[in-house]
Amino acid sequence: MLTVGALGAFLGEWYGNSAWVGMMTAVVAAMGLGALHAALTINLKLDQIVTGIMLVLLGVSCSDFVYDSIFGDAESPPRIDGFEPVDIPGLSSVPAVGVILFQQPTVVYVALATCVGAWWVLHRSAIGLTIRAAGEDPETVAAAGKSVAQVRWVAVLTGAGLAGLGGAVLVLGQLQLYSFGLIAGRGWIAIAMVILSRWTIPGALAGAFVFGVADSFQLRVQAASGGLDSNVPVEFFQMLPYVTTLLVLVVASIRGRRSAAPAALGVPL
């Protein structure tokens, strides 16, 4: 879905000439794939893992195929403008953190706002309560007279839309182009983050932050220690985010010993 979102964003901007259109198409495209996932797993009760993997394959190949048939003949990869970094007046000149925190492309702020919004929805609204409850105890929700299927549809579609947004962030905010395999397993890392964060949004944000910090840290250290000529092989820096995540995971597991996974995660009803 990230890939589909990335392509959606790219095409949206390419044809719509606006980064905002790109963001919209990203979300819509990813939700389309999400709808397929929901139909297969919720209505037809297929195994969620298998279906998920197959849809990864489907999404990636579809995106690559569409991109290839449209731009395959181009000499160099076409570029788009994406979102320019915006200055938040005043704050961006704060020493040290100013540029990092307050001079990011718009999509980054959209993503952060989404985090806050998602937390609010999950904790403060009827649909959020229902989603949380549907995860904990689907029968309770059924007994409360709500359709578990409907709730799960909403959740899957929202999740897909957010994944699309993630793809859009990559394309519009960071790379400003589309390339094959650009997502590089980030969806799996996201799953890791969610488990790591014990299914809470602040936790997921923290997890993504740790991964992101380790990722940018390795780039800096790599540069500082002399790039490819350094004594320490570059691959060990690249490995760092994954090893860090694994270590955090081990420490968290030893301390926690208990997973806060919604009890009915992955169980069809």
């Binding site: 890791a192 694994l246 995971l249 597991s253």
Partner: peptide, 15 residues
């Protein structure tokens, strides 16, 4: 330690 094997085996691919 109860570390999810899904995650550890996944991360170990990258390593």
């Amino acid at each position: 330690y109860g570390v999810s094997e899904v995650l550890s085996s996944l991360l170990l691919i990258f390593v």
